[in-house]
């Protein structure tokens, strides 16, 4: 099961990376003569209300959805882990300050906070990216901090210090390898959320701007044709479902294998 899911994820990433070579048409080329066509040999999944090829738009959309979800995931992972490790390792006042900031951010529902941030900086992919990162790093920071606090008391850290390791060496050799697994498990589960969030914000028109393709944005464009052509919404919807579900299944499997508690 986990192998199948990992394969699906890999496939999606490959499609996203090689989109220009795989996509049969230009995703933004308007062809009003063939608008809202059904499936044909030329357009396997038909065309949308501006005559753009659906399959090509889905393939290019994977680029944005997966690519930016991956960026958010990576940046919040790195930022959260570093800040959390620092907070737990140093302790005291700094720890107190960082944890209160985290709690402040966690107190708001994610989407509300992101909407607020996007409202301040204006819509656009970069702003959404920053906003989501600012919201997501706290979860990594919190988990990482708690693990570091409990690790710090273990005798092998004291033994490492006695044997002459500096703080940086202790963090690198002992702390980071020991927090890696739970963080990776959590990150896999978070990745699904990141894709959902990006799609949700694009659906609201805050993320990627037309005419560029993105799954959430495609669902939004499909809403005006929901009665006559529901497939315009169904295709990207199914893709989001598959991707988020596979990430969740992989995350669950990993957490079971490594015996890691979920948040």
């Amino acid at each position: 099961m986990i192998a199948v899911c990992a394969g699906v994820i890999l496939l999606f990433f490959l499609v996203a990376i090689f989109a220009p070579w795989i996509a049969p048409h230009d995703p933004v080329k308007v062809d009003l003569v063939h608008k809202l066509d059904g499936p044909s040999a030329q357009h396997w999944l038909g065309t949308d209300h501006l005559g753009r090829d659906n399959l090509s738009r889905l393939i290019y959309g994977a680029r944005v959805s997966l690519g930016f979800a991956f960026l958010i995931f990576l940046s919040s992972l790195v930022l959260g882990t570093l800040v959390g490790a620092l907070s737990g390792y140093v302790g005291g006042r700094l720890d107190n300050l960082i944890m209160r900031v985290c709690e402040g951010i966690m107190a708001f529902p994610n989407l509300v906070l992101v909407l607020g941030i996007v409202g301040i900086f204006g819509p656009g992919l970069m702003q959404v990216l920053l906003a989501l990162m600012m919201v997501q790093w706290v979860y990594y920071a919190r988990i990482c901090r708690n693990m570091v606090v409990s690790l710090k008391e273990r005798p092998f850290i004291a033994a490492a210090r006695v044997s002459g390791s500096s703080s940086w060496q202790i963090i690198r050799r002992h702390i980071i390898p020991n927090v890696q697994r739970p963080i990776v498990v959590m990150a896999t589960l978070e990745m699904g959320w990141a894709i959902m969030d990006i799609s949700a914000l694009s659906f609201l028109g805050l993320g990627i701007q037309p005419p560029n393709a993105e799954w959430g944005a495609m669902i939004h464009e499909g809403t005006s044709h929901i009665r006559s052509h529901p497939e315009l919404m169904i295709y990207p919807g199914i893709l989001i479902l598959i991707v988020v579900m596979t990430f969740n299944i992989v995350g669950e499997a990993l957490s079971e294998r490594y015996g890691v508690a979920k948040r």
């Binding site: 273990r154 005798p155 092998f156 004291a158 033994a159 490492a160 050799r173 002992h174 390898p177 020991n178």
Partner: peptide, 10 residues
């Protein structure tokens, strides 16, 4: 240390 198991990085 006393606790031989947690004195080593697993």
């Amino acid at each position: 240390f006393q606790d031989c198991h947690s004195s080593v990085n697993p």
